[in-house]
């Protein structure tokens, strides 16, 4: 869906973190959402109502569709969180409460 204009390693400081256990190459200063989209991830969570797949929509902190769990804290906005080396990112797990 997305590509980088230049590889993550070129220009800027490279940062690596993990998404669902997979190593993601990112660039210092960019958002978790941008890094994940550039790495080919489109689905960030399942909606808590119908478990439908969701991904980033507005990229400016308003829609809350890019919610992920970061270092154990659920409900983090991937588009508003700057990548940090070694962070553990997972799909938001809040979904699945019985109706």
């Amino acid at each position: 869906m997305f590509r980088r204009l230049s590889p993550a390693e070129a220009g800027g400081t490279p940062v690596t973190f993990r998404f669902e256990g997979r190593e993601i190459a990112a660039r210092a200063g960019e958002s978790v959402a941008a890094a994940l989209l550039a790495a080919g991830e489109a689905v960030f969570r399942a909606s808590p109502v119908s478990a439908a797949p969701r991904g980033p929509f507005c990229m400016m902190g308003a829609c809350f569709d890019c919610l992920v769990e970061i270092d154990g804290l659920p409900g983090c906005q991937a588009c508003m969180t700057i990548v940090r080396p070694g962070m553990e990112v997972r799909r938001d797990r809040i979904a699945g409460a019985p109706a």
């Binding site: 808590p48 409900g75 797990r93 809040i94 979904a95 699945g96 409460a97 019985p98």
Partner: peptide, 9 residues
Amino acid sequence: ILVTGRLPR
């Protein structure tokens, strides 16, 4: 009252 987002039960 404070209300949280949905949590696993």
